[in-house]
Design a binder for these strands. Structure first.
Lengths: 136, 136
DNA sequence: TTCTAAATGAGAATGATTCCCATGACGTCC
DNA sequence: GGACGTCATGGGAATCATTCTCATTTAGAA
């Protein structure tokens, strides 16, 4: 009842959902629901905070956005290319690069099954300092 | 002023700190500060919740414990062997296996430097369902 | 247009974590 | 062993992200 769920009813098209979508697409890096809500408000768009939370979470579940958890525990979203990949996020400016780690998935699946584990899930994101931020 | 900090003053030995340490060492898998506080209270040990939070965080910073963030955002701690490694955590029972991913670190460092990123840090933990929990 | 279920929004509620600060207890110097 | 300066403690308030509640609005089907 979690991932086997087929999109029973497609989400309705609302003004709010469209505005949230374009706000997220205008981002460079990851942003939290609050960040996006602030930005939208700043840009004159009036959408409730709860709606931003709900919509972003739904979009992430639907695979339209990537969600990561920042080191301090907040959830951040970002549009990204399809296919499995990870992120290299700058701790200072938030700039994000998508990276792929060929072979990692298979390696992990093997190790996990050696330990009897199944239904694996993982979140692997790297946080560092990008080139522009490390130059004094 | 974060990692360059030398242990200026060694922490004092207190009853609370000792009790917290043994409570953590008695664990099988990861547990949150609240879990540990509950367990201690159940075992007749009276230590303030704030103290448990402070002490576990300090122990993790000192490298005496491993801290991970669970999928729902809480911080969990566990004693573990020295050296860099990752964890395979059962979503159902919390059982934890330590795993190493030889080559991953080097691979990531290479990719990161290709992108101009430095001072890398990462948290890579796997959550799955262990053998005993997946058998009906 | 009409109707119904889904979506929205404002604020309350929740829950983990941290802060505040008066009190208590290590460790040190005598 | 005793006095003292500090760091540690604890309990409750405060914070902060996130979720819930529920009355109201609205998309989309009939």
């Amino acid at each position: 009842m979690t991932s086997t769920e087929r999109s029973a009813t497609p989400p309705r098209k609302t003004r709010q959902r469209a505005e949230i979508r374009s706000a997220v697409e205008a981002l460079d890096g990851f942003a939290t629901s609050q960040d996006i809500h602030d930005r939208m408000r700043h840009d004159g768009s009036a959408v409730g905070l709860a709606t931003v939370y709900r919509t972003l979470a739904a979009m992430a579940t639907a695979g339209e956005l990537d969600a990561i958890r920042t080191p301090d525990g907040q959830v951040a979203y970002r549009t990204c290319s399809p296919g499995h990949h990870h992120h290299l996020v700058c701790r200072t400016c938030g700039r994000t690069e998508e990276i792929t780690l060929p072979g990692l998935e298979a390696m992990v699946r093997t190790i996990a099954s050696d330990h009897g584990f199944g239904e694996l899930d993982h979140e692997l994101e790297f946080f560092g300092i990008c080139g522009s931020c490390s130059r004094p």
